[in-house]
Nucleic acid binder design. Structure first.
Lengths: 243, 243
DNA sequence: CGGTTGTTTGACGCAGTTCAAGCGGAGTGG
DNA sequence: CCACTCCGCTTGAACTGCGTCAAACAACCG
C-alpha cells in the first residue's frame, strides 16, 4: 500500500530492516481510518486498545487547559507513531488531534506485542522512535524556554522541513503545512496576532513564506542560522538537509 | 545496598517485580560513581557506553545555547534512569549535569541489553520509564507555553513533591531541593530576578516556602489549585499525594 | 576579615498580549 | 448572480509580565 512508504522510511532511517521485518510492519498497518480536520484521533483520558500510525495528514498532541486554552506539544506527520506509548501508559495524559484531514492505521496493542515478540529488532525500532519523540519534546522545551518568538518560529520550520524530507514528503525547500495561524499560536505558546507579525517578518527578511498551507524556505542557510538550528536531536543521520 | 531502594521503588511503582527481577536490577547497579555539584555527569555530544541511574542527589538534563544561556529540560531525582536512551540514541543530544553532589550507578549498555534479554518484564519497565520521561517533558512544554511564571513555579513544586514521595524521599509536605534560584531560572525559562519575586509571592500567599535548600508546602490544596496540578501525567498510581 | 556565591530590591525597557476593528476569500442560500 | 455569513488573516493602539541593569545585602569559607 502506497501510504505505508513514509512509515517505513521513518522506521528504517537508522537501521535497514530485513524483508521479513518490513513485511511484518506493513502487515500490521492494515486497518485504516480517516479523520476530518479538528477531530480528535484520540481524546485525553482515553484507554485505547490500539496504537495509531499516521499515514497522511498532519496531527498534533495537545493538552487543553482551563478556560479552553490549548497547548500543542508536538506535530505528527506521516510515518509517526503518535500514541505508541499507550501500549504501556494508560490512560492518555494528552489528546491527539487531527489538524488537517488525516488517514491513520490503528494497530491493536495485542498485535504490537506479538510483532515485537517475533521481531525484537522491530521492538527496538519502536522504542527508539519513542525516544526520538522525547528528543523532539526536549527541543520544544528549549524553544519555549529560551528562544524569542522569531527564532522559535524559524526553528519549527527548520524541523518540519528536515522531518518531512526524511520521509520523502518534501523535495527541495518546500512542503505542505496546512495549519492556521491559530494552530501555530497554540504550538508556539504565542498569541495569534504575534504569530502573524513574526511570519511577516520572516517573509520580509527573505527567509520563509507560508501561504495557502504551503511553506517555502527561500534561504535555508539564513533560516538555519536565524533559528540556531542543528538537526542532531532528530537522530535522522545524514543527507537530510537540503543543499 | 541502601541506595538502591529509591531506584527499586521507582521501577516497581506500577507492577510488582518478582524477587528474581528485583535482584537482577539491583545487581546491575554495582559500579557507582560520585559527582560534585555543577559537574557534568554526561556531556552533550558524548557517545556513552553505559547508562546512568541516579542513586542520591539532584541532577538535570540541559542544553546550552549560544552565549552560554542554559535551558534545563528536566530534573532527575534518586531512582531516575537519566540517560537510558543513550542505549539506542547516540550521540547525546543534551547534557546531564549534577545540580548537587550526586552518586550514580553506571551500567554498561551491554549489561542492560543482557538483563533485558533475560528479563523481558524489566525491559518493559525500562521502556515504560522512558515513556514517563516523555510525559514529564510534555507537561514541561505546557508549563512553558501557557502558564504564567507564578503557576509554573507552583506546578514544579507540586511535581517534585509527588515524584519524591513516590520514591520515599519526602514525608508529608516537605522535601530537600538544594537548587539555587539560578538553577530554577534555567529550568523555568525565567530570569533569576523574576524567580526570586515569584518565590516571595508564593511564600507570602502562604503556599510554599523554600529556604536553605528545603521546600515546605504549607497549603497543599491551595498550591495544587494555584498550579492547576493534576498528577495523572506522572503515571504513578494512587496514594502519592499528601493528605 | 575579605572574597565569593547566592539573594533581594528598585527603576526602566521591551517582547509579546489583549482588545478592537477591518479585510478578503470561500461557501451557501435566495 | 448577488447578498450574507463564516473563518482566517491583518493592522493599530494600549497594556503588562517579565527581562535587564545596577547595586546592596547576606551567608559561607578560607
Amino acid at each position: 500500500m502506497a501510504t505505508s512508504t513514509a512509515a517505513l522510511r521513518k522506521l528504517e532511517r537508522n537501521e535497514a530492516l530485513t524483508d521479513d521485518e518490513r513485511a511484518a510492519y506493513v502487515a500490521i498497518l492494515g486497518r485504516t481510518r480517516t479523520f476530518g480536520a479538528r477531530e480528535d484521533i484520540m481524546p485525553e483520558g482515553a484507554r485505547p486498545t490500539f496504537s495509531t500510525v499516521m499515514l497522511t495528514g498532519v496531527a498534533c498532541r495537545y493538552r487543553t487547559m482551563l478556560e479552553g486554552r490549548r497547548q500543542i506539544v508536538s506535530l505528527q506527520f506521516a510515518g509517526d507513531m503518535c500514541d505508541l506509548h499507550s501500549l504501556l501508559l494508560q490512560p492518555m495524559d494528552h489528546a491527539i488531534g487531527a489538524l488537517t484531514a488525516c488517514t491513520v492505521a490503528q494497530i491493536p496493542h495485542e498485535t504490537v506485542r506479538e510483532v515485537v515478540r517475533r521481531h525484537p529488532r522491530l521492538g527496538e525500532a519502536f522504542w527508539r522512535d519513542t525516544l526520538i519523540d522525547g528528543a523532539v519534546f526536549r527541543e520544544w522545551i528549549v524553544s519555549l524556554g529560551r528562544r524569542t518568538a522569531y527564532v522559535r518560529v524559524a526553528h519549527l520550520f527548520c524541523e518540519a522541513l528536515v522531518r518531512l524530507r526524511a520521509v520523502g514528503l518534501a523535495e527541495g525547500c518546500e512542503f505542505d503545512l496546512p495549519l492556521t495561524q491559530a494552530d501555530l499560536a497554540d504550538a508556539f505558546g504565542l498569541s495569534i496576532v504575534h504569530v502573524n507579525r513574526v511570519l511577516q517578518r520572516l517573509r520580509s527578511d527573505g527567509l520563509v513564506s507560508m501561504r495557502g498551507g504551503r511553506v517555502a524556505i527561500h534561504d535555508w542557510r539564513g533560516l538555519k542560522a536565524a533559528a540556531e538550528f542543528s538537526p542532531a536531536y532528530l537522530h535522522l543521520g545524514a543527507d537530510v538537509e537540503p543543499a
